[in-house]
Design a protein around this nucleic acid. Structure first.
Length: 422
RNA sequence: GCCGAGGUGGGGUAGCCUGGUAGCCCUCAGGGCUGUGGACCCUGCAGCGCGAGUUCGAAUCUCGCCCUCGGCCCCA
């Protein structure tokens, strides 16, 4: 008989948790540096929140179930909708712009695979209330910083703009636009082309088609300008994208950005710049986001422009764990070993005192022999051993052994503390 | 949902073709060793994913299922 967690949901062992925590710490540091306030929303939401903008078929990829009163609940598949709900309701009177962050576990009913778990963690930044390209640039620069601080120097961005393609399809029903973009995202080009031809003029189809060939550095925007010029909104979007990229490049000339005008992301709520962040040698994207100006209004709020991203904490964690050379575990700095029952009370007092002075102390409660205690400390990477036996208990002293220099002293706790401080 | 490879003490593995005693390494516990070094030696705990079938007998052969890892499909 064995008990396993549900399929696709992972236990995190100490080493794995330490890596995840480090990523979370870095994201929180970015919140601080950029002025984002962290919020928390429930793991469970009503189904309507996610159905509002997503289609019926999405239901099959979510954990949906009835509560005891028959209401449809869902384990959140992402957090942007919940945060937008907050901005539309409880935070609706806060002055804009509003910068919010979250660290949250999300759930998707999918076939588990590397980097795709049924339960995974996301960290997000959402900036509400600004249409300014500076805010788009901020999200990308903050994303860059997260990866940089984690030592993921091989990062690169792929950036597009849904306004370019939507601009060309301006006269087509929104829903059909969504379908075409989603087909393109899934690289089902034949089907996309078919649908385009049903709803669009020949030159529009041709232009959409040729946009996909426009990928590379920022110069592709210049090249695309001519072909989209008949569609004002598309042209405007192109210029918006150009501004965003040049703002970013101005701050960081060496940032790796691939502009892709044929790039579409699956989420239907995007209205402007969209991006993905990738790592060399990995297929999946580790962060994604974009501008979604209509979402807050959809949830009953005032029309509020917004841009944000969600960072795949679990994916980054798996990527980091795949590298052999990392270890983020923090052993306590001191092992305190007790050599006799009579010394127990005194030993606990010493440990208490050490902790009050800020040292992390692990008391060896297994009552090993001294040789074994030394071995334990060495195996755990602990370099300081405090030895408490009958002698120390009788004299009110402590013995501190430095396992690196292989030396030790027996003295009062005060003296030993001053030695530790060095 | 599809295809492939797998599942053997806590971790890593051998055994499977050719049915018959489950072996090894690490870890863990105890001892050798009454208060001083990463070693060594001894002892010990604990395992064939689940279920059915074939058989005198199944880790091994057959069928079904579950799960893990890849690759598709899909992807918020």
């Amino acid at each position: 008989m064995s008990f396993e967690p549900p399929r696709g949901m992972d236990d995190l062992l100490p080493e794995e948790f330490a890596v995840k925590q480090r990523i979370v710490d870095v994201i929180r540091e970015i919140y601080r540096l950029y002025g984002y306030e962290e919020v928390e929303t429930p793991t469970l939401e009503y189904l309507e929140l996610f159905e509002a903008k997503s289609g019926e078929e999405i239901r099959h990829r979510m954990f949906v179930f009835d509560d005891p009163h028959g209401r449809k609940l869902v384990l959140r598949p992402e957090v942007t909708a919940s945060v937008a709900r907050l901005v539309a309701s409880k935070l609706s009177r806060r002055p804009l712009p509003l910068r919010l962050g979250y660290i949250a576990d999300c759930y998707r009913y999918d076939e588990p695979q590397w980097g795709r778990r049924r339960r995974f963690w996301q960290g997000g930044l959402e900036l509400f209330g600004s249409r300014d390209p500076m805010s788009d640039a901020e999200i990308i620069l903050a994303s860059r910083d997260v990866f940089q601080k984690l030592g993921l120097v091989e990062q690169r961005f792929k950036i597009g703009h849904v306004g370019v393609m939507r601009g060309i399809m301006e006269n087509v029903e929104q829903k059909t636009q969504d379908t075409i973009l989603s087909l393109l995202d899934r690289k089902m080009h034949t089907e996309a082309r078919q649908l385009m031809e049903q709803h669009l003029e020949k030159d529009a189809v041709e232009t959409l088609w040729r946009l996909a060939e426009h990928r590379g550095d920022i110069k592709v925007v210049e090249k695309a300008r001519d072909i989209v010029s008949p569609w004002p909104m598309a042209l405007q979007s192109l210029e918006n994208l150009e501004t965003i990229v040049s703002l970013i490049k101005n701050v960081d000339p060496h940032i790796s950005i691939e502009v892709d005008l044929g790039f579409a992301r699956g989420l239907e709520y995007y209205t402007g710049m969209i991006f993905e962040q990738k790592l060399e040698g990995e297929q999946l994207s580790f962060n994604g986001g974009g501008r979604y100006d209509g979402l807050v209004e959809l949830f009953g709020g005032k029309p509020t422009p917004a841009v944000g991203c969600s960072i795949g904490i679990t994916r980054i964690q798996m990527h980091l764990l795949g590298r052999k050379n990392i270890s983020y575990t923090n052993p306590p700095t001191i092992l305190l070993t007790v050599l006799s029952d009579k010394a127990s009370a005194y030993a606990l007092n010493v440990a208490d005192n050490l902790r009050k002075n800020g040292y992390s102390v692990s008391v060896d409660v297994s009552r090993k022999k001294l040789g074994d205690a030394i071995e334990t400390a060495l195996n755990k990477g602990i370099r300081s051993l405090v030895i408490i036996g009958d002698k120390e208990a009788a004299d009110g002293t402590v013995t501190l052994r430095d396992l690196t220099s292989r030396t030790q002293v027996t003295d009062s706790l005060e003296k030993v503390l001053s030695m530790l401080a060095k």
